[in-house]
């Protein structure tokens, strides 16, 4: 049967994935498999312990349990466009309680990395801005310069909050809890060399040739094999 195009998305059968989606799945699976115990994502029993334990799930549009379910249904793009992955504060409550030992927090880290790499977030997005400035700080000084990070971050995202926080900043400064100048480590060159080399090991982008094909359903979509019969076989 002829490959369908993305425009025909609405016609697709349950669980079918687009080419872009299948690329995302491969990249995602590669990242998840890099986490020790990452393969345990297959064991999810949809009990909802993660959602129930999460202290910030009330602010999520897609609950942690649904993140795993959406993945199974072949909708990583929907996960990446959700607010949820950015709300996670990495408190590891879900990971610690999961009866199937799924590393939910680490999986959310992997999802964040994919979304950042693909720039799937709104303009001036605070989580991206903070992480990017943080990385920038560490690369520049070797340590985190708290005051510089906060100033750069609020200048970029929320000037009003910078003004609102200013009185507190002055109080902290008076108490000696803010250091005015960054502390550079001596071995900055070393850090840069380590970063440059480590960066070459990043998971390579998959160039998946397959078009949107009816047989690529669920987990089958990630191993590259298209069953002969095609169609829904669940």
């Amino acid at each position: 049967m002829a490959p369908k195009t993305v425009q025909q998305l609405d016609d697709r059968k349950p669980g079918m994935v687009t080419r872009k989606e299948s690329e995302l799945r491969l990249e995602f699976l590669n990242q998840v498999m890099d986490i020790p115990g990452g393969e345990k994502i297959n064991r999810c029993i949809q009990c909802g312990t993660c959602s129930g334990s999460c202290p910030v799930s009330y602010a999520m549009d897609v609950q942690p349990r649904e993140l795993i379910a959406l993945f199974r249904a072949g909708l990583i793009e929907k996960i990446l466009q959700s607010r949820s992955i950015w709300i996670c504060a990495s408190c590891y409550q879900c990971t610690s309680r999961c009866p199937s030992s799924i590393k939910v927090t680490d999986i959310i880290y992997a999802l964040k990395r994919i979304a950042m790499e693909r720039k799937i977030y709104p303009d001036k997005f605070p989580v991206y801005a903070l992480s990017a400035k943080f990385v920038d700080n560490v690369n520049r000084y070797g340590r985190n310069f708290e005051l510089g990070l906060m100033m750069q971050f609020y200048l970029k995202t929320d000037l009003m909050r910078l003004f609102r926080m200013a009185p507190m900043g002055f109080k902290l400064m008076k108490l000696g809890r803010i250091s005015i100048a960054p502390k550079r480590i001596r071995a900055l060159e070393d850090i840069r060399k380590i970063i440059a080399k480590a960066d070459t090991f990043a998971v390579p982008r998959e160039t998946h040739k397959k078009e949107y094909i009816e047989g690529m359903i669920g987990y089958r979509a990630v191993d590259g094999e298209v069953p002969d019969s095609g169609g829904v076989q669940r």
Binding site: Y109, S131, A132, V135, V138, G142, N144, R186, I194
Partner: peptide
């Protein structure tokens, strides 16, 4: 001459790099 561990923010951007600087 220790360096920043990378915290949660670096891990959100690059995995291998964040592990490498922490491992230093």
């Amino acid at each position: 001459d220790w360096n920043c561990c990378g915290a949660t923010a670096y891990m959100s951007v690059k995995e291998t790099v964040s592990l490498a600087i922490s491992a230093r």
